[in-house]
Structures are given as structure tokens and as C-alpha cells.
């Protein structure tokens, strides 16, 4: 596909494509590359009370990150983000699977339902969750009305509330890539597996899951990384009882005014991102290789490989 576009660009009226590419590159350099490069640079500078930072190079900021406090913060954040990712996957996979298997004319509607929450700021949706979860809130009143509980119950300020908040906010980011990869799945492979005597479960584990692995990993990345730094959900729903990576970074920049340490801490996230992208590209490449080589030469398989 890309090659085809490039061919077209080279010959004939390529001017506007070049401008378009130049504009978007400029945009990315100005607003993505430059700030990140600056941040990385600041991580090696020294803190200053007068001007936030002075350009004296040091590794001290990274050494300070090995402080047990920061390691605890990192561990807590990673644990929270991990659990949220697993919950999103457990809910998102069946959802995406069903969505990819309903009649094609119904799919746009289901996709629409997944996308609707993006029309409202996630901060406001988190406030709405408070109204639902709090004592004398929606759930509490409902339970009392049904006679299940005698007094008001609260789900607020607990890990449970945090996971509800994180799952609710991040779920679409899991569903969308999963849906994309499940939809592409060639059903004939499942038929073949069944013909060869595999149970539905076996076919799912050995055919569906490996073939949709790129979607699983893409979804997990899209959920895990934002969840790692999403500080306002644990703050609002969890009662801010533990400090997370996002809070730590925010604190260094605003309260402690230690920009180099904040920059070093946030570069940890950038490194995590790069590692995950590497894993992703490796897994998806292996996926293609498996399909093209190992499993043989069915026409269906080749058409999959040919997409790339």
C-alpha cells in the first residue's frame, strides 16, 4: 500500500503530497520530538532555584531515582496499571469478539457506542463515577431500594473504585485494536482447526489468540502506559492514599520545583514505551513469519501476508 502511494507521489503531481508530508513532519518535530528531547536534556541538568534548571551536566537525577521511595512509587504504579490492563483485556476481548462477529450492518452502531464516551472529558466522566459510587449515590440508593442493604454503602476511596475508574476510562483503547485484529481473522482457519478435530476452546487458544496477538499487545500498550501516569483517577476515586508516578512527576515540576528529577522520572515512562514498542514489533513480525512460513501455503494465509 505504502509503496503504491510512494510510486504515485514520485510521478506526476507530487507537490502537495510533499507539502503535506513536510507539514506533518514539522508538526511532529515541533510538538513531539522537540519537547521530548528537551525533557531528556533537562534530566541531565542541575536544579536551580532561580531559573528552574542550570545547564550543568550530571547523572545525579537518575541516581536519585534509585531511592526506595521512588522504587515503591514505580512499583505501585506498575502494579495498578498492570491489573487495570488485565481487567480491560478480560472485558474487552469478548466485547471485541462479539462486535467482530455480529452482522456487518450492526458493527458501526456498536463501534459508535464504544466511541461515544470520548465526546465527554474523562475528568467529567470520573466525577460522574463519584456520583454513582459514593455513599447515598446511585448504586447505594438502588441497593437500599431493593432491600439488599439496610443503610447507605460506599464504594468510593478504595482500590475497587480505582479499578472501576481506570477500566471504564481505558476500555475503548483496548477494544478498538482488538476489534481490528479479530475482524481481520480468517474464519476458514477456525473451520480447518475444527475439521482436524480441535475443540472450540483449543481452536481459540491455538488459532484465534496467536493470530490476534498483535491486537492484544497493541491494546495492552494503549491501556498500560496511560494508566501508569493517569494520576487523577486514583486521586479522585482512590482518595490519593498512595503516590503514583504521575503524582510524583507533577510534584517535582510544581511543588518541589525539581525539574531535572521530574524529567528523569518521566523519561522512565519514555523508556517503558520504547521497550513495549520493540516487543510489539517483534511479536507482530513473528506473527507474519509464522503465517507465511511455518504453517504452510494456504491461499488464505498468503492473502493475510500480502496485506503488509
Amino acid at each position: 500500500m505504502i509503496r503504491a502511494i510512494r510510486m504515485r507521489v514520485m510521478g506526476g503531481t507530487s507537490r502537495f503530497f510533499r507539502i503535506a508530508i513536510a507539514l506533518s513532519s514539522l508538526w511532529l518535530v515541533l510538538f513531539a520530538l522537540a519537547p521530548n528531547a528537551l525533557l531528556l536534556l533537562v534530566a541531565f541538568f542541575t536544579r536551580s532555584d532561580e531559573h528552574f534548571v542550570t545547564p550543568v551536566l550530571t547523572l545525579d537525577n537518575y541516581i536519585r531515582l534509585f531511592d526506595p521511595t521512588f522504587l515503591t512509587i514505580l512499583w505501585d504504579s506498575a502494579r495498578l496499571a498492570c491489573i487495570a490492563t488485565v481487567i480491560c483485556l478480560l472485558i474487552g476481548y469478548p466485547f471485541a469478539y462479539i462486535m467482530a462477529n455480529v452482522r456487518p450492518n450492526r458493527r458501526p452502531f456498536l463501534l459508535f457506542l464504544v466511541i461515544i464516551p470520548f465526546w465527554t472529558s474523562s475528568l467529567i466522566r470520573t466525577y460522574a463515577l463519584i456520583l454513582i459510587l459514593k455513599s447515598k449515590g446511585l448504586i447505594s440508593e438502588l441497593l437500599t431500594m431493593l432491600g439488599i442493604t439496610s443503610g447507605p454503602v460506599s464504594f468510593m476511596y478504595s482500590d475497587f473504585a480505582v479499578f472501576i475508574g481506570l477500566t471504564y476510562t481505558m476500555l475503548p483503547f483496548m477494544i478498538l485494536p482488538l476489534y481490528a485484529s479479530i475482524e481481520k481473522l480468517d474464519r476458514r482457519l477456525l473451520d480447518a482447526a475444527k475439521d482436524l478435530g480441535a475443540s472450540s476452546w483449543r481452536a481459540f487458544v491455538h488459532v484465534t489468540v496467536p493470530l490476534t496477538m498483535p491486537g492484544i499487545i497493541a491494546g495492552a500498550m494503549l491501556v498500560f502506559l496511560p494508566a501508569l501516569s493517569m494520576f487523577y483517577v486514583p486521586e479522585m476515586l482512590g482518595g490519593a492514599k498512595s503516590m503514583l508516578l504521575g503524582n510524583f512527576i507533577k510534584n517535582q515540576f510544581l511543588v518541589a520545583r525539581d525539574w531535572p528529577l521530574g524529567a528523569a522520572a518521566s523519561s522512565v515512562m519514555t523508556i517503558a514505551l520504547i521497550l513495549m514498542v520493540l516487543v510489539y514489533s517483534r511479536v507482530s513480525r513473528r506473527g507474519v513469519r509464522n503465517r507465511e512460513g511455518g504453517r504452510g501455503s494456504g491461499g488464505a494465509l498468503r492473502s493475510e501476508g500480502g496485506m503488509r
Binding site: 521511595t69 521512588f70 515503591t72 512509587i73 505501585d76 490519593a240 492514599k241 498512595s242 503516590m243 503524582n247 510524583f248 510534584n251 511543588v255 518541589a256
Partner: peptide, 12 residues
């Protein structure tokens, strides 16, 4: 700095 350090460890 002392306040901030102890606060972080209280929270963590």
C-alpha cells in the same frame, strides 16, 4: 526539601 521528601515517603 525535607518536607517534600518525607511527604513522598509518607504517601509511598
Amino acid at each position: 526539601a525535607v518536607y517534600e521528601r518525607l511527604w513522598e515517603s509518607l504517601k509511598a
